[in-house]
Simulated assay, not measured.
Amino acid sequence: MSTAQPAGDQAVLNRLHDATNSGDVELIWKTIDEVVDPDVLFHAPVPTGVGGAQALKHIWAMLLRAFPDIHVTVEDVIAEGDKVVCRNTVTGTHQGEYMGLPPTGKSITYSEIFIVRFADGRFAEIWGVVDVASQMRQLGMLPA
Rank of each mutant, 00 (worst) to 15 (best):
D24V: 10
I115M: 06
V46F: 12
V36W: 07
A11M: 06
T20C: 11
I108Y: 00
S107D: 09
V72Q: 12
S2Q: 08
V40G: 05
L64C: 09
M141C: 01
I28R: 05
T48D: 13
T20Q: 09
Q95P: 05
R122Y: 12
S107K: 15
T109K: 06
N14G: 15
E26D: 09
Q138S: 03
G8Q: 14
S107T: 11
A19P: 03
V85H: 02
V130W: 00
T48I: 12
D82Y: 07
V90R: 03
Y98D: 06
P103V: 06
C86V: 12
D76A: 07
L16E: 02
I113W: 00
Q135F: 03
L64S: 09
Y110F: 07
I70F: 07
V84H: 04
I115T: 10
W60I: 10
H71L: 10
Y98E: 05
Y98M: 13
Q135H: 07
F114A: 15
G96M: 04
G96N: 05
A133V: 08
F67E: 10
Q5H: 08
L139V: 09
H17P: 03
K83G: 04
M99F: 10
W29D: 14
D24L: 06
G100Q: 07
H17L: 15
L16N: 01
N21R: 08
V84P: 01
Q135E: 14
A19K: 02
G23C: 02
A53L: 08
I32K: 07
A53W: 07
T91L: 05
T89L: 07
R15A: 13
V72L: 15
M1F: 09
I115H: 05
T3S: 15
M136A: 10
E75G: 05
G100D: 04
Q95K: 15
F123H: 04
L56I: 11
A11K: 08
T48V: 15
T89G: 03
V74Y: 00
V74N: 01
V116R: 02
I108W: 00
K57G: 01
A61E: 06
V25S: 14
R87H: 02
G81F: 11
A79R: 06
G8I: 06
G92K: 04
V90L: 13
Y110G: 08
V116H: 07
E26F: 03
Q95V: 11
A55C: 07
K30E: 11
S107G: 13
Q54R: 12
V40F: 08
G49H: 05
N21Y: 04
P38Q: 00
D9N: 15
Q138W: 00
T48K: 14
R137W: 00
P102Y: 06
A7P: 01
V40K: 04
T73K: 12
K83F: 11
G92V: 05
V84Y: 05
F114V: 15
C86F: 13
